[in-house]
Nucleic acid binder design. Structure first.
Lengths: 176, 176
DNA sequence: CACTCTATATATAAACT
DNA sequence: TAGTTTATATATAGAGT
């Protein structure tokens, strides 16, 4: 699916192989997500790169699907459901708001999409607030945020996950 | 990728949904096989149809890949104190959801980009005109979103900030 | 690297068988 | 319910930044 037709054999050139792996892996995950969304199906993908690095995608999550497949429906441990981590109510509220806004934003954009004409004027009329193209930054933030989140989902290593979680929000915090 | 563009939501018509599931499932497996062949990667896919039927693909085979993945998780799990794994699962789930929201958002904007050249140069040639059209609603969502993200992380010095950042995503994970 | 930009190769939605 | 066809939508190879 590119400039040339690729032979279906291992790509020799290691640099190309790596690029292809990365592109196709994300392509595969996207497909999996679409399949799941469109058809209401549960799906899990596990890939090991040639270098041995694990990548995974799961919806609703890997464990559920894999366990179901292995007929080992282990019961969830609900004992930690809320733990001490949810103790900061202020933060919790904010996050809740944030989440709603995000959902609303998505719905809004979709709605505007249908009113194509108006949406097209978005960029013309509302970009600058004072001097700063704040909204543009927002979009970039969203993209970066998305990328970070994507990494979080892709990488199953919990420690890396938490690290990246911090990183992503720090990034957002530091960009202005 | 067909006669029409499909909305990324569950297909209502059950007959169409079934056809789509079948087609896309085989498409996904084919992609997985190609990825494996081209890059020398191990891969496993498990899918449950909406009806609950399991389908799977694995190269060299499912068991190998899944076991490799789970062994790795076991190691990881042992090195953690109790409870962290459960939270991480939920973090992953929540983050996945958010990610999907953002993917959709991004897709919408991208779609508009193609339709409207002006939008492509969003940040370059758009001047603030002081208008307050209806489309402003979208921007308000963006602004609020960003402000709240900032609020999450801006309050304190970097160490506390990082702590809160982690906490935020963990909270996201714990809220539904 | 991670991303962008195109020309091409593929996947697939609908319709039909 | 699975193939076949065909018009379109996507994915992505290769090259460049």
């Amino acid at each position: 699916m590119g400039r040339r037709k690729l032979e279906m054999k291992k790509i020799e050139k290691s640099s190309s192989r790596l690029v292809t792996f990365s592109k196709r892996r994300s392509g595969a995950f996207k497909k999996a997500n679409e399949l799941s969304t469109l058809c209401g199906a549960e799906i899990a993908i596990i890939v090991f790169s040639p270098g041995g690095k694990p990548f995974s995608f799961g919806k609703p999550n890997i464990e559920t699907v894999v366990n179901r497949f292995q007929n080992r429906n282990q019961k969830r441990s609900r004992s930690h459901e809320n733990g001490s981590r949810a103790s900061n109510k202020k933060t919790q509220k904010r996050v809740q708001k944030l989440n709603h806004e995000l959902i609303n934003l998505d719905a809004q954009v979709e709605s505007e999409n249908q009113k194509n004409e108006k949406f097209n004027q978005w960029g013309n009329n509302c970009l600058f607030e004072g001097k700063q193209p704040i909204e543009q930054l927002d979009l970039n933030h969203l993209k970066i945020f998305k990328r970070q989140l994507n990494d979080l989902c892709t990488n199953s290593h919990s420690q890396v996950m938490e690290f990246q979680a911090s990183q992503s929000l720090l990034l957002l915090a530091n960009m202005e």
